[in-house]
Design a protein around this nucleic acid. Structure first.
Lengths: 341, 341
DNA sequence: TACCATAACGCAAGCGCTTACGGACAGCGC
DNA sequence: GCGCTGTCCGTAAGCGCTTGCGTTATGGTA
């Protein structure tokens, strides 16, 4: 209970009749203390319920045990899974994760990163798409450069424009794979629900799709720009149904959007996949349980979160480590051959 | 770029020819500085890219802008939605959220909270079920008591045993509602997939179920203890199918588990709801998109996260504020009358 | 025995900020 | 003119920890 009082390093030192220096060294396992004393210190500290003041420690030059994670949409399963892998791995390494929600707004993102830097976090992990316009990220990069220069570590997931360690999902390949899949099923009138054009993920996935579909005279392709969210896609799907009612396949640029599309189609009484096929990206955990289950491409998101932490833990080598993450086509119920005319 | 150097308060002060005290006061909007000077300070600080060192500030007695969130399972949508509401609301108030994963292990939880306390977070939000055994939480409560005594703020979501501000979902009511729902559909052979008995949420939901089903001679009720996770339920569902093949309804104590049940039944070729009805708790976002969509009870999770932040922001009044959160039955495809014999 | 490395520990100077306290100065009433 | 109040600002004392350096004890070596 002990209202209002926290045991400090000094209290422990006094209780043992040693100096704070000794206690400090003993507790952080540094050399310069005999093992018996160290043991006694540790025991007493534990008994007294001593917990080091993180701020004092950090200020004095010790190292932080917090890493920052910046995501676009905390509610999006894509990020949830990454966060899950990261937080769990962090916990195993006695690290804490500070989660920031940037809402796909570069300004907000900048603010969040600034705050993380101010907290002297050990590392910043940036998850999600970068911006195609290098200008947008200019401030961010300057900030991150300063951060790394002072010993901070930056790990990106899918931000290929950043010169940091990175996990780079093969978005272009995934786009191509899905386009090919639809083509092989026989679809020729395809709608793509794209996100805001400023995002590299959007750009890459679209590029993959175009690389397969462009130049084919028998293919009618409509690309709709919309919000990169489930609701955005749900609304856009209405437009697809009304403007191009003969569409036989809708390709959403992520699973959240695909779910939105399924939702709209269900409400409108359009049967999937009998009348319209739907596919997404990312193979979010629930994709398999959807009604109908969703054809998508898989990136090992949880695994990527864990791997990001591994990068955090291993000190940055001379040059940036960039690992490409491969995709995998997951064929499920939501795609099928188009209806006979 | 400026490798290795961060602008400090002192740098700003020197640039302006004033004392650090003045700069400090100006930046934190305290009295004692003329408005012109304050304005000049703010401008110069911004120009120099000054960002206060959070640790120094906190150590010197300033207040933190971090709040800690402890969840049982970061991957569980239940917590994800709460976290989503919380993180978003926090962002709007210039607060950072530190997320901890306790994995339903009191020891780990304790460790995480200890770490949060060491970080002098402004508030600790504990989400998820408490433990029925008061002993288990004894250490935790001592820790939290110390924390509040030093001005910390504790907000619980669903931890009715803690004497803090709390949001208390009506789990008992929800259990009763679902049991009644199954009964009304005509189900008489019901299996319940419960979680570990040490959790109050499990206890409360079960209590609600029992309050409706107990004493009815025509009802055959089997309660299975299992892991409170999707995989745990998936495994348990196998057991249900094999041991009590005539079961017509499976009630899982949360949606994640219900999803696991659906998964198992699908694999086994058992049709839902034609042969077996399935229901869950919480109305996680994907419940509506499942195949088949899931009957469940809704708690406004995202809203609860937001509300928790509101509690964090409003200073604790004399006595704990405890708000009960009502549930709502969401009837969907996964429940229907049992098959004719 | 004298000398020096080595180990074990204490001293004290910070880390970058906040804030009590006090000084300087202006304005006011008497 | 004096004193008083109030405003604006600087001085300096910490906040609780880490760590470089100095001191002392210890043992090994020539």
């Amino acid at each position: 209970m002990e209202l209002g009082h926290v045991t400090r390093l000094d209290d422990v030192a006094r209780a043992l009749g040693v100096s704070t220096a000794t206690v400090s060294r003993a507790l952080s396992g540094k050399a310069g203390v005999s093992s018996e004393v160290a043991e006694r210190v540790r025991r007493t500290a534990a008994e007294m319920g001593y917990v080091a003041n993180v701020h004092a420690r950090t200020l004095a030059g010790g190292t932080t045990t917090v890493i920052g994670l910046v995501v676009h949409e905390i509610g999006d399963p894509y990020f949830t899974e990454i966060a899950g892998g990261l937080v769990e791995a962090a916990e195993q390494n006695d690290l804490l994760v500070q989660v920031c929600h940037a809402g796909r707004d570069p300004g907000r993102e900048l603010k969040q990163v600034r705050s993380l830097v101010a907290h002297r976090v050990r590392a910043v992990v940036l998850a999600g798409s970068g911006h195609t316009d290098p200008e947008v990220d200019a401030d961010l990069r300057a900030l991150l450069d300063g951060f790394t220069a002072r010993g901070g570590h930056v790990v990106a997931i899918g931000r290929r424009h950043l010169e940091s360690d990175a996990l780079l999902p093969d978005n272009t390949g995934a786009g191509a794979t899905l386009a090919r899949h639809l083509l092989e099923l026989g679809h020729r009138r395809i709608a793509v629900l794209g996100g805001p054009p400023g995002l590299t993920t959007v750009q890459d996935r679209l590029a993959g799709i175009h690389s397969v579909l462009d130049g084919r005279e028998d293919v009618e392709l409509h690309v709709l720009e919309t919000d990169f969210t489930r609701d955005g896609a749900a609304t856009a799907a209405v437009e697809v149904v009304e403007r191009w009612p003969r569409t036989t396949a809708v390709l959403a640029l992520n699973d959240a959007m695909a779910i939105g599309v399924l939702d709209t189609l269900r409400r409108r009484g359009v049967r999937v996949p009998e009348q319209v096929s739907v596919a997404g990206f990312d193979d979010v955990a629930v994709a398999a349980q959807l009604s109908p289950s969703l054809t998508t491409t898989r990136f090992p998101l949880t695994e990527m979160g864990r791997e990001a932490l591994q990068l955090v833990l291993t000190p940055p080598s001379g040059e940036a480590r960039r690992r490409r993450v491969d995709h995998q086509l997951i064929t499920r119920e939501s795609t099928a051959p188009p209806p006979q005319e």
